[in-house]
């Protein structure tokens, strides 16, 4: 409950007529007031030698202050927001280029075909549906189920096959699995046909080899659903993490772009489902709530292992799973 700075403190002191100098710890070490104190008491001629030593001391202190300020200037971190534009990746220019490509809504993943349960939510909760509420649920649920796999694949692209298999076991509904696999396969094709030839220098050769093997494994898997376990499914999350790692994006950028793409897909679906228009959609996208929401969920699952990934909004599985039951549908999920 302390006032925020010396100014408010002083005002408060004057108004109440008390000696804030003695009371407030912040004030006791406040340098200018100390100097004023010395000046006031020690300017008589007889004290001259003493005031000279104090003057020397002051000079030294001032020099220290200037040095410290200069040092602060040199080592100051850039003031740009940490998440997006900062040169964080190991090979910055091309990584920024790929950051923009992966966050582009024209990236041909086919995300526009999926509403991640929004369409079903609207059908189940009409007329009490609320888009902000759904966005909050969807962000939390997607982050807790899928983001740990993105992070894990970025941290260890070598484990891609295993991560893909584990995520496949953790998706509890057909509709959600279909959406994740369709986009993952599309991303793998983009990698294969478009990105791989423009690979930035310094990219991990091992990780590239893993992706190549994964693509071969996927081709060997029969596309027809059988009772046998698939050897590879190509879910979006782990592939996104592995590819972002190879392209030199930072881990935080990867997580942010992944979650932001999800929000963008939801908003685009909402516009096409006629919940609101494109300007309102941009307004939500630009809002502090969305920025903080994405930052918040990333913070929350940053250290979550894939074993502890799981559903935080159970009813989401019902909405997504029951999408197939809708009489008319404009989306695939």
């Amino acid at each position: 409950m302390y006032p925020s700075g010396p100014d408010t403190d002083r005002n408060c002191g004057t108004r109440l007529g008390t000696h804030t100098l003695d009371v407030h710890p912040q004030f006791k070490c406040h340098l200018p007031s100390r100097i004023a104190e010395y000046d006031f008491f020690m300017t008589s001629p007889s004290d001259y030698p003493q005031s000279q030593t104090i003057q020397d001391e002051l000079d030294i202190l001032e020099k220290h202050l200037q040095d410290a300020k200069a040092r602060l200037k040199e080592g100051a971190p850039p003031r740009a927001p940490r998440l997006l534009v900062a040169n964080e990746g190991p090979f910055s220019t091309s990584s920024q280029h790929f950051l923009l490509l992966l966050s582009d809504s024209a990236l041909p993943l086919g995300s526009f075909a999926f509403s991640s349960g929004l369409e079903s939510y609207l059908a189940h909760t009409r007329p009490k549906s609320s888009f902000p509420a759904f966005l909050d649920f969807s962000l939390g649920s997607y982050a807790s189920t899928t983001l740990p796999f993105v992070l894990a694949a970025y941290r260890n692209p070598i484990n891609l096959v295993e991560l893909d298999d584990t995520l496949d076991a953790a998706i509890m509904c057909t509709v959600g699995r279909r959406a994740s696999v369709a986009q993952g396969r599309a991303l793998l094709s983009i990698w294969d046909r478009s990105f791989a030839s423009a690979l930035p220098d310094g990219g991990s050769k091992e990780a590239v080899a893993v992706l190549k093997e994964f693509a071969i494994l996927l081709r060997a898997t029969s596309p027809v659903a059988t009772n046998d376990l698939p050897t590879a499914s190509a879910h979006l999350g782990p592939l996104f993490g592995a590819i972002a790692c190879i392209l030199g994006m930072s881990l935080r950028q990867t997580a942010y772009v992944f979650m932001l793409s999800h929000v963008k897909a939801l908003l685009s679906a909402a516009v096409r489902a006629s919940i609101f228009g494109p300007y309102h959609a941009q307004k939500i996208l630009a809002s502090v709530e969305v920025q903080e929401g994405i930052g918040g969920v990333i913070e929350r699952v940053w250290d979550t292992s894939i074993e502890d990934a799981g559903q935080s909004v159970p009813i989401m599985d019902l909405w997504v799973g029951r999408h197939e039951m809708l009489y008319s549908r404009i989306f695939n999920s």
Partner: peptide
């Protein structure tokens, strides 16, 4: 091999 993992966390 893991066939199914159904985790629900309500916090």
């Amino acid at each position: 091999r893991l066939l199914l993992r159904d985790n629900v966390f309500l916090n």
